[in-house]
Simulated scan of single mutants.
Amino acid sequence: MKKIGLYFGTFNPIHIGHMVIANHMVEFSDLDEVWFVVTPQSPFKTKKTLLADNHRYQMVYEATKDYPKLKPSNIEFGLPQPNYTIHTLVHLNEKYGSDHAFCLIMGEDNLKGFHKWKNYEVILSDYDVYVYPRISEGEIEHRFKGHPKIHKVDAPIMEISSTFIRKSHKEGKNIRPLLTDSVWKYMDEMNFYR
C-alpha cells in the first residue's frame, strides 16, 4: 500500500518553497509520494485573487513533472464548492482507498487553527497529519501536542509566499529564482500577475 501525503493549497503560484517542503516530506519521512492538491477555492480565501484553476494546475504539473514522487492533483475540481478537506479525503478513499493510505501535510501555522476545520476530529481519528515548521505566533492547542496521529517533520523553514511573489512580480521585481524554470516560463508566457 502506498502512503500518500496530500499537500493542499491554491498554489497561486507554486514556488520553490512548496517544492522544498514536499520533496523533504517524501524523502525524509515514510511517505511514498506527495500529491499537490490544487484547491479551486478555500473556505478561508476569496476567489478574486486566484488564477483560473486549470492554469494553477498546469503550473503544479510543470513544477513536478521531473519528480516521480511528486504529483499534481485536480481531484477537488469536480467536487462541490466551497469544498472541505474531509470531503476530499472521503472521495479519495472511495476512489483509491484499496491500495493508497492518505495523510495530510500542513504547516505548523495551520495546525494552530485545525480545531476550526470541518470534522477535524474525524480527520484526526482516521488520518495521519504531517506537520512542517513555520514561523508563526501563538501556541498549538494542548489537544494536538503529542497526539499519536500528528507527526512533526523537521523540514526546512521556508518563508516564501505566493502573495509575496505575485506582489513583487507586479512591481517589476525579479522573482525568477523563487520559481522552477518551467513555472517561470509558463507564468511569463501567459503574462500572469503583472
Rank of each mutant, 00 (worst) to 15 (best):
K71P: 13
K71S: 11
P72W: 05
P72S: 05
P72F: 01
P72D: 05
S73M: 08
S73T: 09
S73H: 07
N74M: 14
N74C: 09
I75K: 08
I75T: 09
I75D: 01
I75G: 00
I75N: 01
I75Y: 01
F77G: 08
F77H: 09
F77S: 13
L79W: 00
L79T: 01
L79G: 05
L79Y: 02
P80I: 06
P80M: 10
Q81C: 03
Q81P: 07
P82L: 06
P82C: 11
P82T: 03
N83V: 15
N83I: 08
N83Q: 07
T85C: 12
T85D: 08
I86C: 09
I86V: 15
H87K: 11
T88E: 07
L89R: 03
L89H: 02
V90Y: 00
V90R: 11
H91N: 06
H91S: 04
L92D: 06
L92M: 14
L92P: 10
N93Y: 02
N93E: 08
E94R: 15
K95M: 14
K95C: 12
Y96I: 00
Y96G: 05
Y96C: 12
Y96D: 10
G97M: 10
G97V: 10
G97P: 13
G97Y: 08
S98C: 09
D99C: 15
A101T: 15
A101C: 07
A101P: 00
F102K: 12
F102I: 13
C103K: 07
C103P: 00
L104E: 06
L104G: 04
I105K: 02
I105Y: 03
M106Q: 10
M106N: 09
M106A: 08
G107E: 12
G107R: 12
G107Q: 13
E108G: 01
E108S: 14
D109F: 08
D109L: 11
N110Y: 06
N110G: 04
N110H: 07
N110R: 09
N110V: 03
N110A: 09
L111Y: 11
L111I: 06
L111S: 06
K112L: 00
K112G: 06
K112D: 02
G113Y: 07
F114Q: 04
F114Y: 10
F114N: 01
F114K: 02
F114C: 04
K116T: 05
K116V: 01
K116S: 04
K116R: 09
W117L: 06
W117V: 02
W117H: 09
K118G: 01
K118I: 14
N119K: 14
N119E: 15
N119T: 00
Y120H: 15
Y120W: 15
E121H: 11
E121M: 00
E121L: 01
E121R: 02
V122N: 03
V122K: 07
V122L: 10
V122M: 05
V122S: 04
I123H: 08
L124V: 04
L124D: 07
